[in-house]
Design a protein around this nucleic acid. Structure first.
Lengths: 343, 343
DNA sequence: CTGTTAGCGCCTTCAA
DNA sequence: TTGAAGGCGCTAACAG
């Protein structure tokens, strides 16, 4: 009986790529059986299984996922688009997401949008070429083209870090409007009346600040001075923000749209020998665990990026397993206002 | 004359995937011509080019890179393995690397090793399945299996954040031994004699510390107490480290293996009302720009992650263009000892 | 449980 | 400058 799949002599060099067929030949089975043994071992007799694994080891075979993906229309790839990973709230998210996905053998393609819809659009376009099984997007401000492309691709999408009315598909986050509102109420309840706001020019940060202003207006508080600095948020921007606020009359409390900004404000206050929160109180947003050690008087809105990432991974995996339907998932992870002001 | 490539009716629904053949049919050319128009436009008449682009727009075609990669053995994918992105020195690196590569149309697959050789090995294995065009690895401590696999895959590899004797291929970083040595000399020159060392259990950090100890020994300085804490580096670990050092007699200067650790030490010192650097001096490592605003007395070894990432991207692109040969590249990006101690 | 056949969508190679 | 044939390595679907 003549063996098949003899097409190629045994690789002599080292660069030659070993294929399924080589493994099949060594194991003395059909290529399809090797494929099964590797991907659905439960369908294969255990002895066959052993033979195949031996052959894999002997040959140093590494499955070609490009070929596998092409044949099966499953890439086992999830794309993640975030504005940056320099900010710990996003890197926590990404890290948790990767952890959750990699334990189910999904790999992640990351893209950095730098808060730009155009970049996001280009990235989505490029990434769709890889036929990812799922896409995670930070935020809900996407270009029309992006939304359309994603919608009709029917790829599972998770929008994170935000909750909005018209999700593309799944959504995991919290309401930035709610943050602004609750911060306003919280601070009003503590007796503050003279506010100052510092934000960078980032859509979500601005939404929090606008909501804060609306809530203050409702309570008939004087319209607070509002300094918007160009992105990205830096310590320097925070210092500059406080400087500008102090040119007019000093607010009792400065609300910052981000953690780094708040640290900048604190640094500037320190350099002016202002005591926090006695001379000026500061409310931050995001991860201020580092600063909190140094400035115990700092209040903050705490978001847990890791939880958002973990939930996103779970949502995708559930969807891959057919446990949920498009647009089924909408999770409010909430936020906490952590108050360290002892004013 | 009967047209070819009529295999499929025009997609009516929206989920149907558009292929090169569909575009070819719409444009009235052969599939191969579409491929050329998209990938090597210089080989195509400009009118044909226009027809193809029109058809692409009309059909909403997105090239399938799995198929393209399979056919051409080029994935336009670069894998990046780093211990974590929670640390800004690595996230800067990753960010710069992605920037550099994406402008040449490469995408990046990221993997997090959590400082574990086993995880790195598993990730390398999984990632090789995607047939990346290049791989970037942080550090030089890899398992034998990892090294062997990478070596015989002949995929361009860049090891970053370190310089060692036996590179797999390209290497961009600095010598951790040199850091330890220079820090020792620097501090000795400033007159310090009573040292304390705090490190987490991370290979590169330990190498810096060991080298520091060796240099101190050479200069006949008393063997310093050396606290090694379990990874990951946290503020808490730093505080604990200083606590332990202070149980014996207090050192004049504490050298920390990482930025976070140094911040923990500073926080603990602050909570004990110790003045830095008067009561105790602190030398950190990595990105302490945040802490520096708060603790102007902190010294640090400054590494620029962004430069390392940028250089790595350049090195890979040069290699892809055939401008360099395996093992041609070895770049010492150096480091700076930034001294803010005014003791 | 295992094997056979027929593509997946694109690009390489050669021919026109 | 464009086209046709064939194959990249794998898996779905159907037989046996």
């Amino acid at each position: 009986m003549v063996k098949k799949y003899e097409r190629k002599a045994v690789a002599t060099g080292s660069g030659e790529s070993v294929t399924l067929i080589d493994v099949a030949r060594v194991a003395g089975v059909a290529p399809m059986t090797v494929s099964r043994a590797l991907n659905r071992p439960e369908l294969v007799r255990s002895e066959t299984q052993r033979k195949v694994l031996d052959a894999v080891r002997k040959t140093g075979y590494v499955p070609n996922m490009l070929a596998g993906g092409l044949a099966s229309s499953k890439s086992r790839l999830v794309a993640i688009l975030v504005p940056t990973i320099a900010n710990s709230i996003f890197s926590d998210t990404v890290q948790a997401l990767m952890d959750g996905l990699s334990s189910s053998n999904y790999q992640t393609l990351m893209g950095l949008t730098a808060y730009s819809q155009e970049r996001e659009e280009a990235l989505v376009e490029a990434i769709m070429g890889r036929r990812p099984d799922g896409i995670v997007l930070a935020g809900t401000s996407h270009s029309k083209a992006t939304i359309e492309r994603l919608t009709k691709s029917r790829i599972p999408v998770v929008e994170i870090w935000d909750l909005a009315d018209k999700p593309i598909d799944m959504m995991i986050g919290f309401s930035h409007e709610d943050v602004g509102k609750q911060v306003a109420r919280h601070l009003l309840a503590k007796g503050y009346r003279k506010f100052g706001i510092v934000s960078v020019d980032d859509p979500r940060g601005l939404r929090r600040c606008e909501s804060l202003k609306r809530e203050l207006a409702k309570h008939r508080v004087a319209k607070p001075p509002f300094e918007v600095l160009p992105a990205p948020a830096t310590l320097q921007a925070g210092r500059e923000g406080l400087n500008r606020l102090l040119e007019a009359n000093a607010p009792e409390i400065v609300v910052c749209s981000s953690d780094t900004l708040a640290q900048g404000v604190l640094a500037e206050a320190a350099s002016r020998a202002m005591k926090v929160p006695r001379d000026i109180a500061v409310m931050g947003f995001g991860d201020l665990s580092t600063a909190a050690h140094v400035y115990p008087a700092l209040s903050t809105v705490r978001i847990d990026g890791a939880i958002i990432g973990m939930r996103a991974a779970q949502a995708l995996l559930a969807r891959f397993d057919g446990e949920t339907e498009p647009a089924d998932v909408r999770i409010d992870t909430g936020f906490a206002i952590i108050d360290r002001q002892s004013a």
